[in-house]
Nucleic acid binder design. Structure first.
Length: 197
DNA sequence: CATATGATTCCA
DNA sequence: GGAATCATATGA
């Protein structure tokens, strides 16, 4: 069963480059129908990771146990642990084996998440949504974990990605996107290097 | 098998 | 500024 006002996006929503999906996900809703009730956040910050050729993307190491879901079919969740403590939720996209994914970095509480609970920052977002590595590989086109497309428009800000200094020139690519009007973005837009549509 | 290092957050 | 904390990747 799904929340009537938050219909799941169909598979073809995910069949595009991570850069495009990262923009599309701004303003979209991430829904988790957990055991203790539904949780919904409005996505306000994302980053695109674009396959083996992207030095900041985990797919650069090829197929391993960790990257199995990243290199698997689109429309599925890629959840991994960073720094030994924080889980990061990603949406696999484009096509199977492409290694494209969008990291969801922040959201605004909408349903089932206390209004004062913070969901800014990838680790906090995953925790607020009750998403763990157990959700790695989960199909994102149906309950209990899915994306519901945005309605309306978003003022998009663009910047370099966070925490990827090791990636050389790729660290500077403008592949982080955020809602300029949201106070729930994980970092101030001071580092903005351009504005989107 | 040993070791270095993160797509981070929290505390001092 | 530094610790917490551990799966993963890499090299011996």
């Amino acid at each position: 069963m799904t929340l009537a006002s938050y219909p799941p996006a169909p598979l073809d929503y995910f069949l595009r480059d991570a850069r495009q999906l990262a923009r599309a996900l701004l303003g979209a809703f991430l829904v988790h129908e957990a055991g203790d009730g539904p949780r919904v956040v409005r996505v306000v910050e994302t980053e695109a990771y674009r396959g083996p050729g992207d030095a900041a993307c985990h797919a650069r190491v090829g197929l391993t146990r960790r990257t199995r879901t990243l290199l698997g079919p689109p429309g599925h969740a890629y959840v991994f642990l960073v720094y030994g403590m924080h889980e990061c939720f990603n949406v696999v996209c484009l096509g199977e084996g492409e290694g494209h994914a969008v990291l969801v970095r922040a959201g605004e509480p909408v349903v089932g998440v206390p209004p004062d609970a913070r969901a800014d920052g990838p680790g906090r977002l995953a925790r607020a949504m009750g998403i763990t590595r157990a959700d790695d590989g989960r199909d994102l086109t149906a309950s209990p974990l899915y994306i519901s497309p945005r309605r309306g428009t978003v003022r998009v800000g663009v910047s370099a990605r966070v925490g990827v200094a090791y990636a050389g020139a790729f660290a500077e690519r403008p592949w982080r996107f955020y809602d300029r009007l949201s106070p729930h973005v994980s970092r101030p837009p001071a580092s903005a290097i351009g504005l989107g549509r």
